[in-house]
Design a protein around this nucleic acid. Structure first.
Lengths: 206, 206
DNA sequence: AGAATGAGCGAACAGTTGTAAGCTAAACGG
DNA sequence: CCGTTTAGCTTACAACTGTTCGCTCATTCT
């Protein structure tokens, strides 16, 4: 086996070990280099042949998670074409991702407000892809001015993301409710933005 | 000085030490019992005279944070009575809280998705107060059915909370933008829910 | 006054952590 | 084919962690 090939192999072993140790009660911050190395089947010091420190590993994990997120977007687009209901399809696709890859989603969720500024901005960047893409769609499909399309997209992504977080702690019997609730919320937003978008001034007590 | 009084005093010293060590790069999980005890001016072992372990301290901190949140709600209600604009006043009040008590807000933000189930549900409970109160208001002021009032309140709290999180990493020059963006989002929701609330069926491609 | 309570302390222990130094052996490049 | 490179190892160290034990001594209760 080629040397580079073998190196890539144990690099993946490290990454996989790290992902597999993430759970509801174990965040990336609470992983230890030694534990990861142990599960990857290498000596602790060999870790340094692949990453300068745990932070570098963490950024790699966030990148991989972001990659999966982008694949998810593609998948959602395909489904929408064959399905029609944009909001319902998007929310359902996202929920399936959260349930099926809860460790990955949890990583993003936690590091978004974690203790490392580098992690936070890495996660923020990945989420911005989501927002930008959705905003572009809204600009095309609706008469929304650019700035407001972005604000609308941000609100929608925020709500969907938050529902994903709820789902992590909810029993699976709640998934259907969470999904439909979020769909309703997004429809409100879309409807409100469409009919209310061009009136930034005060009106009424709300 | 009475014994109970002195005990309460060092208990507060511990709590204050813990709060003061929280920061952008230091979460509760990364605090150590010894460090907290050091800053509180007691021996590490004396910590156990007040808390069974760090988790118990953490739950206390979350409770205190929740208390501050409820005080905030009262303050917001007073302001609204003298001001009129419900949404604007609420968002501005909340943002002031986040800026002025960033460590407290960060605690809630992080532990909401942290590694301890007990912490997560404690934070969720505090936030539910917010939601319940807002939902009650919406039921009174609008024609929204109960279930939808709750969904609307949840969406609003989610958006405001998320904006608070954004503010933590944003330069203060961005505060005004974040505030007005959120106000717009909440108005969309209110408007959409009002005119769209009783149509749960599919319609259009959105 | 005398006994009991309990907050606080110091010393000590067993674990864990990250990381440095130096070696081995296999794959590589000339 | 021989020298170089390098992934991986073992050993070692210093720093920290949470927690137990037994003691002191001021406050409290009787």
């Amino acid at each position: 086996m080629s040397r580079a090939e073998q190196k890539e192999r144990t690099r993946r072993a490290i990454i996989n070990a790290a992902f597999s140790q993430l759970s509801a009660d174990k965040s990336f911050a609470s992983l230890s280099l030694r534990e990861v190395a142990r599960e990857a089947g290498i000596a602790p010091t060999s870790f340094y042949r692949h990453f300068a420190d745990m932070d570098e590993l963490g950024l790699t994990l966030v990148d991989e998670a972001g990659l999966m997120l982008r694949q998810l977007m593609r998948q959602a687009r395909q489904r929408i074409e064959k399905n029609g209901s944009v909001i319902r399809t998007s929310v359902e696709t996202f929920m399936e991702f959260v349930i099926g890859n809860s460790n990955v989603f949890r990583l993003l969720l936690r590091e978004r407000s974690g203790t490392s500024a580098a992690f936070r901005s890495a996660v923020a960047r990945e989420i911005q892809h989501f927002v930008a893409e959705l905003a572009e769609y809204l600009r095309k499909e609706t008469t929304c001015p650019d700035e407001l399309a972005r604000a609308q997209a941000e609100a929608m992504v925020t709500l969907v993301f938050h529902t994903g977080a709820d789902a992590l702690d909810a029993p699976s019997s709640q998934y259907a409710y969470l999904t439909s609730r979020t769909i309703t919320q997004l429809r409100w937003l879309a409807h409100g933005a469409a009919s209310y978008g061009r009136k930034p001034k005060e009106q009424g007590t709300l």
